[in-house]
Design a protein around this nucleic acid. Sequence first.
DNA 1: ATGCATGAGGC
DNA 2: CCTCATGCATA
Length: 346
Amino acid sequence: MTMSMYPSPDKMKMGTPGCFPGRYSPSYRGPDQMRRCMTNPSGDIFSGLNDGILSRAEALAAVDIQKHQSSHAHTQMSTQLKHDVMYHHGMGGPPQRPLQMHHTMDGLDMLDPANSMTTLTPMSDTPISSSHHQLHGSYHGMNHMMGHHHGGPLSGHTTGHHGHPGAHHPAMAAAVAAAGLHPDTDTDPRELEAFAERFKQRRIKLGVTQADVGKALANLKLPGVGALSQSTICRFESLTLSHNNMIALKPILQAWLEEAEAQAKNKRRDPDAPSVLPAGEKKRKRTSIAAPEKRSLEAYFAVQPRPSGEKIAAIAEKLDLKKNVVRVWFCNQRQKQKRMKFAAQH
DNA sequence: ATGCATGAGGC
DNA sequence: CCTCATGCATA
């Protein structure tokens, strides 16, 4: 497998010292200009479509429209420049994250639930109650305290374009050191790919699931590092994360792997850890976009990946979907597209 | 394994 | 309202 995939980061530069584990600056506000372009009365591409076409001709129609639209509304094709960013933040602070997750579930510590050396057992007093909420709270909490987004581990630097990735900052250096890794070795896609594979293989050998790994990360007690979901571990293994994200997570997962293998050596068994399943709470319902609608969205996306709010509203109406659903779909599609593009080039 | 969603941080 | 990192829910 030589495929990697991360998107080409529009923003890969952070030169600064940011701080700790997570940070680079994200937002790139690029193409805003294109967003508001077509507000023209008749010119709007989307306004041109009538219900009649929606069914499925729409997909074709949308594409088709793009070719002709220059007549009235071509503004949207504007330039897509991306800028990067710069970065900010400096803190020197306190590296650790305050909260830990308390879920009732921690049956597993690291690998060894009951008495591992680290004594990890996180649980606190709160037994799950609001389910999803809590998890969120835990990582989010730290995340905003740190700088940028969540987790902590995140963002690293981009793939290697800058000189050295790792520690510019003391705090970060410390974290890196703690994790036992060095900053330099990793931004290479090739290396990440190889590591992801090794990781998966060894994880399986240890008999640990992706979900177990995610929870166990909190037990490592690395500054700024909390639990992660099965999804994230899965995406790491399959390289389905952004490049920056892969880089940020690698050291953490590597640290866990080493620790887990060490513990596995002198292992013993203690069957405890009955995970108390949380009382069911409100389950979030995942809206599912039907195939025809999805096809239409894809067609629109091909024409305009970043429709304005108004266009989104129009599309939503045509497809009979909630505006927010459509907006989120475009956001997710863009993220996916970035990964795909990046993967394609590597 | 992956689709839709949330939320922080940023313009 | 965007991008990003992540997650819950689900196929």
